[in-house]
Design a protein around this nucleic acid. Structure first.
Lengths: 332, 332
DNA sequence: CCCGTTTTTGGAATCGATTCCAAATAGCAA
DNA sequence: TTGCTATTTGGAATCGATTCCAAAAACGGG
């Protein structure tokens, strides 16, 4: 039982392929009677237009690709949920792929844009070098989310990471923090921006950073614990710690708590992202909320403009507002 | 600067389109000199074969689609990481799509298999009715992971949920549990199987279930808390609770702890999945480990067989071994 | 140097849906 | 009925890569 083609439908319905195609695409130039015959034939043969043939002729796929290293963070899955919903609203399908940080895989996936497998690309923390992102974005529709290359070669949607880190650090200062430490991650660009914001807030308060600890590679719960252990080894403990993500903050809180310290009384801890872990931690984490879902929606909208409006400028940046969420891990 | 075609490459290289195609596909019947000329022309024009034209002619895409409601669980992201790695090993690209539980979206995505956008489909907890899954799997390559329809219409890969729940419940009994409650989820089929396993273990121990609580809709941390609150309202507290997922167990532990109870001394709590939350919980959760990554790999391998071996039987089931992980939330 | 093999090449046909153009039909007024 | 416009239709051309077949070139042995 081979696949039915538009020819088969035409034959069964007793019309020409042109008419079948017109029915398929809702052209008004079809008589009511032919439309019925064609519809019946389509149902009878359970016919589906073959995607590759259609894409070839139309020169577009109505598909976009969203790329990330992993899917294990709630921020990513919320961003992509936003992308997916916005895409569906516009009749697009959004596909997601994870590269596992493998550069070759990532190249292969980006090639899906270059070879016309998809019409647009949304990049979340690419592995490739900035200039490669720029090169791809030069001629094709690419939008970055959250992690954005310095050069404004492509379009990007994110919060202002520097400002957000500044804000939450100021909160630590205003609630009595004097010896401020940070546990961060230099790998990601956003991590570096958060470090900048932290340093600026500390400096403006007339203080200087107590300890700056940076994790290599994986940056999760265990990294948070082991970096917090380093804090404990020091002679003078900091009285406030800003962590680059909630998960790390949760690990940090756990390690401090296990060592008999009270959070926030002995030491305040702040996270970043307002992920589910922020509420699951004891005490619940003070953190910065990223509007992840909304960022995804905006990213797709921007992408759509670039895909459909010919002269749309391909570079630039949209910042979405972040929000300080004060909970129990810092002094009220 | 329009896209270069195989014709352009042929012209530039001074050969025929046939030769270009042969170089592209590594056919041995090409002289060294033509190969070089073609390679040079390809680089010069930065040519990429158009996916839709290639797919149309070849009648396959080398792409598979992995479908799930959400991507917010670590089990899913691990399963899909396994699928992605196994696919890459075989030269396939695996794309992921989330349906947000929207039936129409799901239909549209499943149609990608029927209209040849992808060669195979991996289903994780579909929204559609069982018979629809069967109908699709009848003629096309479909493999289910984790959540598997009763009827053995399609192929499935999962752990033995009933047995796993049985095992962890037995553990609760063996560590002194006499009044056993369960917090579960009837929506998912795996949830019902886990309930069966729980009931069987309780019954075999000569006991009867204390309380059976089932969440509707969202089944996360807050659901765990609010269902645990119901436990607290009862006159006699259970001395052991089996929760359908770690997140729910974490919520449950939190609510009980906040109420001044000691876990596991006053009440033991067990989870399911061995997700990251199991280790982040205080006390760390006793749970059942699903070999999620491995399940993803196996699912793709099974799918590959179905896609490439013509007569491969399309139904059946592979169970992967689960593992009881005993931590501090139950008595040692 | 010629003939039979083997290797390499060119080019037309093909995949299936869309679209354009010309032709046919319908509809309407006079 | 005739003539004109408006609607509907058929069918060929097209998109770009692959593949098959026949032709051409290269090769080797005698």
């Amino acid at each position: 039982m081979a696949r039915a083609t538009v020819q088969d439908v035409a034959r069964t319905a007793g019309v020409s392929v042109g008419t079948v195609s017109r029915v398929l695409n809702g052209s008004p130039a079809v008589s009511e009677s032919s439309k019925e015959k064609v519809t019946a034939a389509i149902r009878q043969l359970s016919y589906r237009p073959l995607a590759s043939a259609r894409d070839l002729r139309r020169d577009r796929t109505m598909r976009v690709l969203a790329l990330a290293k992993n899917l294990d963070s709630l921020v990513i899955s919320e961003v992509f949920r936003g992308v997916g919903d916005a895409a569906a609203d516009s009749g697009y399908v959004s596909l997601i792929a994870a590269t596992s940080g493998d550069l070759e895989r990532e190249q292969q996936l980006v090639d899906m844009l270059r070879n016309g497998s998809v019409d647009g690309l949304i990049l979340f923390s690419p592995t490739m070098a900035d200039e490669d992102v720029e090169a791809v974005a030069e001629h094709l529709s690419v939008v970055q989310v959250c992690e954005i290359v310095d050069a404004e070669a492509a379009f990007g949607v994110s919060i202002d990471d520097r400002q957000a880190a500044y804000d939450i650090t100021r909160h630590l200062v205003e609630t009595g923090g004097r010896r401020l430490a940070m546990i961060g991650n230099k790998n990601a660009r956003s991590g570096r921006l958060r470090e900048e914001g932290f340093r600026q807030a500390v400096t403006e308060a007339g203080l200087s950073p107590d300890r700056m600890l940076f994790g290599e590679g994986s940056f999760g719960f265990h990294a948070g614990r082991s970096l917090a252990r380093k804090l404990l080894e020091a002679e003078h403990l900091p009285d406030a710690v800003f962590c680059g993500t909630d998960i790390v903050a949760a690990g940090c809180v756990r390690e401090l708590t296990d060592a008999g310290l009270r959070v926030p009384d002995d030491i305040a801890v702040a996270g970043f992202d307002d992920s589910a872990q922020a509420e699951m931690c004891v005490p619940e984490l003070t953190t910065v909320r990223q509007p992840a879902y909304e960022m995804g929606r905006v990213a797709f909208t921007e992408l759509l403009t670039r895909m459909t409006v010919p002269g749309a400028h391909r570079r630039g940046r949209t910042f979405l507002p972040h929000e300080l969420v004060v909970r129990d891990s810092t002094k009220g």
